[in-house]
Design a protein around this nucleic acid. Structure first.
Lengths: 156, 156
DNA sequence: GCCAACGTTTACGTCAACGTCAAGGTATGG
DNA sequence: CCATACCTTGACGTTGACGTAAACGTTGGC
């Protein structure tokens, strides 16, 4: 009856809705949870999964990494793990009084970030090259088209 | 310009050498050929595969697409197919006298290139965002490090 | 002429990333 | 109270991208 879904405060979605919204299947959502890529979402009294906006945000991040970087699920897992390690370190940082320990934590996080940045920049370079080549090609097509338009008039 | 087959400087490589050069396995090379991703290379009298520099170039192109774009093999196949279609169209173009037909061919090729460009640019955007986020993170780490250095002195 | 190293095809094995039932529990309109 | 539509957890099937082993041919050195 008084379920948890007031209209202005209903930040939870059932699996089918999340599937529809992300374009994934329900199976895929359960699978991602199964392999630890998605944290287990909340559950209803009847054991239904309830995804929050945060869950969906994370999902969309996963999909972006999958699409754009072409990473495997375990690579994505590692990638996100590192991102969260930053948060952990941030939390730890404020609970750590020893400056040397703090420094070590920062160094660890920074090393991870640099590693990820390297990976991303490598892919960016190849992608940029491909884009430039395609743009150059399109320019040539445009030139050819103009040339043709001229020919057409002349040949007419 | 006519170096089709120099005598001792053979521009042909056996499968093991190609594997070593590209970091792939022999199985993978045969597999790529099997699914039509690599054109069947030349053969020796004894039926050994002989890869040309062009074959290796194409292979490296495939690997770049795999690494940077994260495409599946069939997607790579389609991608390259389009690129070759452009060449075909280019050849056809010069054998076609009818300006209207030429224009149609150019339009077809341009449409393909635009489609590819869209794909590449979508991935580029996500990648650029990821890179910017990582750089921002690294800057924050640097700031934290400086802050720590200050604390260290103060606390000393 | 032989043999070890490298090649060939054929075929089954594997692992990731899901798809697809099957058997049952849960919410809801009539 | 029941139908039905959505959910749950297994459990087995499928596909892409190879690995691996078997059975056999080729090449090069001694």
């Amino acid at each position: 009856m008084t379920q948890d879904q007031p209209q202005d405060d209903a930040p939870y979605y059932r699996i089918e809705q999340v599937a529809a919204r992300t374009g994934l299947t329900k199976r895929t959502l359960r699978y991602y949870e199964e392999i630890g890529l998605l944290p287990p979402p909340a559950r209803t009294e009847g054991n239904y999964r309830l995804y929050s906006e945060a869950d969906i945000t994370r999902l969309e991040r996963i999909l972006a990494l999958k699409e754009a970087l072409g990473l495997t699920l375990s690579e994505i897992n590692a990638f996100i793990q590192m991102e969260e390690e930053r948060d952990d370190i941030r939390a730890l940082y404020h609970e750590t009084s020893d400056p040397a320990a703090r420094l070590a934590q920062i160094e660890r996080a920074a090393a991870i970030a640099r590693q990820q940045l390297d990976l991303v920049e490598r892919k960016l370079r190849t992608l940029t090259n491909t884009r430039d080549a395609l743009q150059e090609r399109l320019r040539r097509y445009d030139a050819l088209r103009e040339e043709l338009a001229g020919q057409k008039i002349v040949g007419d």
